[in-house]
């Protein structure tokens, strides 16, 4: 049984078809990389799994998306609960203009957690998991926006982890960061996969090769190829994939 699955997904923004007939399965505790040229629909595909595309009101969707074998686009589906289970990290760090502590505690508070000790414990644990704890433990009440960009991104990861999701969606999580911060996050992804199912969108081929178990290559809204990362990067079936991963077109 796979953790995440898309079956025959077609998605339109108005008249524009952003995803064409996509089917794909992702297993528990793996890292899947989504690669492809800009505008090919990677983010759109990623955001299907926590129904973030719903925020655009001109979106139309056909096909089935399953998380833990449940159709999340069913009428009766609980979107808020889904989003709690499927965490997300964005391209640009987007901490709230609140303190570090309140950023991480946000998800708990909105889910009705009142117990102070529990919140503190979760905040500490999440910051540790996001390897930010040592940087910030002395003053958790500092405004989050005073952190460096790389720290802010790790804070966003901690914030996502605090509500104990089982899936983590990451949309180009390192593209706005310097190389050192980026490699910290890469290591983090590697560690987190023990507990979480991770899907990461990236434009960085080395990064995809380093962190992921499987890779999906998208082109103009279509899924061209999906296989083990090793295979995609060494002998892919399609010429287009070959061209893309070797950098022959962008």
């Amino acid at each position: 049984m796979s953790k995440l699955e898309a079956r025959d997904v077609n998605l339109f923004f108005g008249a524009h078809q952003a995803l064409k007939n996509i089917s794909l399965q992702m297993e528990k505790h793996t890292v899947t990389a989504l690669i492809g040229p800009s505008g090919c629909g990677k983010s759109t595909f990623l955001r299907l799994f926590n129904r973030m595309n719903d925020l655009h009101n001109d979106m139309r969707l056909s096909g089935t998306i399953l998380v833990d074998n449940k159709n999340i686009y069913q009428r009766s589906a609980d979107v808020d609960a889904l989003r709690k289970k499927v965490g997300m990290v964005f391209q640009k760090p987007n901490p709230f203009p609140k303190s570090i502590f309140e950023n991480v505690a946000y998800g708990l508070r909105i889910n009705g957690v009142r117990n102070k000790n529990y919140i503190e414990e979760r905040v500490t644990r999440s910051l540790q998991q996001a390897s930010l704890w040592d940087d910030v433990k002395d003053n958790l009440n500092r405004p989050a926006l005073q952190l460096s960009y790389g720290q802010q991104q790790r804070l966003c990861i901690a914030r996502a982890l605090a509500v104990e999701p089982s899936v983590l969606l990451m949309d180009e999580p390192t593209s706005a960061l310097d190389p050192a911060s980026a490699s910290t996050i890469e290591e983090l992804i590697y560690e987190l996969k023990i507990k979480y199912t991770i899907v990461v969108v990236t434009h960085n081929m080395q990064q995809a090769a380093r962190v992921s178990d499987r890779t999906a290559f998208f082109y103009l809204g279509e899924l061209v190829e999906y296989d083990e990362t090793k295979i995609i990067f060494t002998h892919p079936t399609h010429q287009r994939t070959q061209n893309y991963v070797t950098g022959r077109f962008g």
Binding site: L55, G87, P95, F96, P97, K98, N111, A160
Partner: peptide, 27 residues
């Protein structure tokens, strides 16, 4: 309110009202 702030809130499972109340109004 920046779209990214709203998305961050929704992505954590916040309802629309919670996002308005805890993110948009403070912002």
């Amino acid at each position: 309110t920046p779209q990214s702030m709203k998305e961050a809130s929704y992505a954590l499972g916040a309802s629309k009202w919670q996002t308005i109340h805890k993110v948009m109004i403070p912002f």
